[in-house]
Computed example of a mutant assay.
Amino acid sequence: MGASCASAVERDRASVAGEQARPRPAGGMLSLVGTPIGNLSDASPRVLDTLRSADVLLCEDTRVTGKLLARFGIRVPLERCDENVIARRVESVIARVAAGQRVAFVSDAGMPGVSDPGQRLVDAARDEGLPVEVIPGPSAVTCALVASGLPMEHFFFEGFLPRKAGERARRLAELAPVPGALVLYESPRRVADTLDSIAEAYPARCVALVRELTKLHEECVRDVSGELARLIRERGELRGECVIVVEGPGQDELASLSRQASAALASPEEAVREGLCAGVPKSALAKQVARTFGLGRSEAYDLVVSLSRE
């Protein structure tokens, strides 16, 4: 190794060491902390350091978070701040951060704000110009995507589907054209019903059920939607929170959906009016209408502009 290269390496090492040794800045901070989704050993050193240094730790369930703290010998005041009370707590939490306190927020598992409380606190802190940091941790969304083995160049996180069958079916129909994998959360009590609805909505797609992520009995079961629904129904009640990954639509399915959408709209004018009501930008709407009805792009754009003036 040349002298100049060696010198550069030494400088880099010194810089990294300085970053690691640098004390945390004084003053208030809102920390959104990702916690293990099953295996407590997944808690990173930075996660543990942030929890230890907090003046107060807000959590969904003090019993759940208490087990995490006990596992690592951390003692810090715990306060409940779940989805039922967080709206009432925002003002007082922001006041604490503004007064210089270090407030940490965790969900029961995974990243706060991802289908869990937390977003309101971040939004309010940003509005007040207060510092916010995110301490990375495990996420069931990305873990399930990787475990499924399904194509995931693009994906859409839906979270929990509606509980009622009719509403669930309507939402799945709305999600059908999404050009990527769908990631859904579901409880073990409702997962069989949800898989039945998915099989009805997407009979040709492959679906993976990922359960007990990071735990001893982690499982990924994958098959064509109808076969998977039948298998899970026959197994009876499951345990552990479930993540469902649905394969994205193929070209044939997308073409079929496009034809159905065209048939549902009787004319280009109707399509434009619907798009304008939905707030679709004029240029994007013109491209969509031109493609759907075989119009020239300039003709479609003139139609969009004309009808937008009505």
Rank of each mutant, 00 (worst) to 15 (best):
Ala204Asn: 13
Pro188Tyr: 05
Phe155Met: 00
Val191Asn: 09
Arg190Pro: 00
Tyr202Arg: 11
Pro151Gln: 00
Ala201Phe: 14
Val146Gly: 04
Tyr185Phe: 15
Lys164Pro: 09
Leu182Asn: 10
Ala165Asn: 11
Pro131Ile: 01
Leu184Ile: 05
Glu186Asp: 10
Ile198Tyr: 08
Leu184His: 10
Met152Arg: 14
Ala169Tyr: 06
Ala169Lys: 07
Arg171Pro: 06
Leu195His: 07
His154Tyr: 11
Ala140Val: 07
Ala169Ile: 07
Thr142Asp: 09
Pro151Phe: 13
Glu200Gly: 03
Arg170Ala: 09
Glu174Tyr: 03
Arg170Phe: 00
Glu133Asn: 10
Glu133Ala: 15
Val191Asp: 10
Ala165Lys: 12
Ser139Ala: 03
Ala201Ile: 07
Asp193Val: 01
Gly129Asp: 02
Arg189Gly: 08
Thr142Pro: 02
Arg126Trp: 12
Ser148Asp: 05
Ala144Met: 06
Phe156Pro: 12
Leu145Met: 04
Tyr202Ala: 09
Ser197Ile: 01
Val122Ser: 02
Ala125Leu: 07
Ala176Asn: 09
Arg170Asn: 10
Glu128Arg: 13
Gly180Cys: 15
Tyr185His: 08
Glu174Lys: 11
Asp196Tyr: 00
Ala176Tyr: 14
Arg189Lys: 15
Ile198Asn: 12
Glu174Val: 04
Gly166Leu: 12
Met152Asn: 12
Tyr185Ala: 05
Leu130Asn: 01
